[in-house]
């Protein structure tokens, strides 16, 4: 079972991951599953009506808007970073969290490195599958590297212009 780090109220914790990533050509196992968008579109309804918890992995070219009507039923949305350099998942995460006010887990999957942990947390990601074996403590340090931020984003961090005005 891969390490999963959850970020809640500013604290990073390593947790047991109850979800299984399911490849498109694999049998769907018992329990909680994370499917591709395509697989979700074929099998999602059936699994959800069976009372399963379901998550959807979004590849960078897939936009979260495609899930707009399914979000209330989803436990996890996982915007993927096939390469850490591919920054499209940041936009998906922000739209998910700010525009759709998604309350479930927004999980970073793929080439997820602690050097980008701060950016991910600010864009609304609240769970991470690190690809660099980073510990929860290291993730905690990485998400708190900067005491201040300049711009509004999906997190609760007050930007500099708000701090200055207060």
């Amino acid at each position: 079972m891969p390490t999963l780090i959850e970020l809640k109220d500013g604290v990073c914790k390593g947790v047991e991951d109850s979800f299984t990533h399911v490849a498109d050509d694999a049998e769907i196992p018992d329990g909680d599953v994370i499917l591709s968008l395509t697989r979700f579109q074929t099998d999602g309804d059936r699994l959800l009506s069976a009372g399963r918890r379901v998550g959807v992995r979004l590849e960078p070219h897939e936009e979260v808007e495609a899930l707009a009507y399914d979000l209330p039923r989803l436990s996890v949305v996982a915007p993927a970073f096939p390469k850490y350099r591919d920054g499209r998942a940041y936009s998906n995460a922000r739209v998910l969290s700010e525009r759709f006010k998604f309350k479930g887990q927004i999980r970073a999957v793929g080439d997820v490195l602690r050097e980008q942990a701060g950016f991910m947390a600010r864009c609304g990601f609240n769970a991470f599958e690190p690809a660099d074996d980073a510990s929860a403590n290291e993730w905690q340090a990485a998400t708190h590297r900067f005491r201040h931020v300049y711009q509004r984003s999906s997190d609760a961090h007050a930007p500099a212009f708000v701090e200055r005005a207060s």
């Binding site: 920054g87 940041y90 936009s91 950016f119 991910m120 864009c123 300049y150 711009q151 984003s153």
Partner: peptide
């Protein structure tokens, strides 16, 4: 300058 510095969404364009 301030808005773009360490912008979380736009650092991997």
């Amino acid at each position: 300058r301030q808005w773009s510095t360490l912008h979380p969404e736009f650092s991997f364009l």
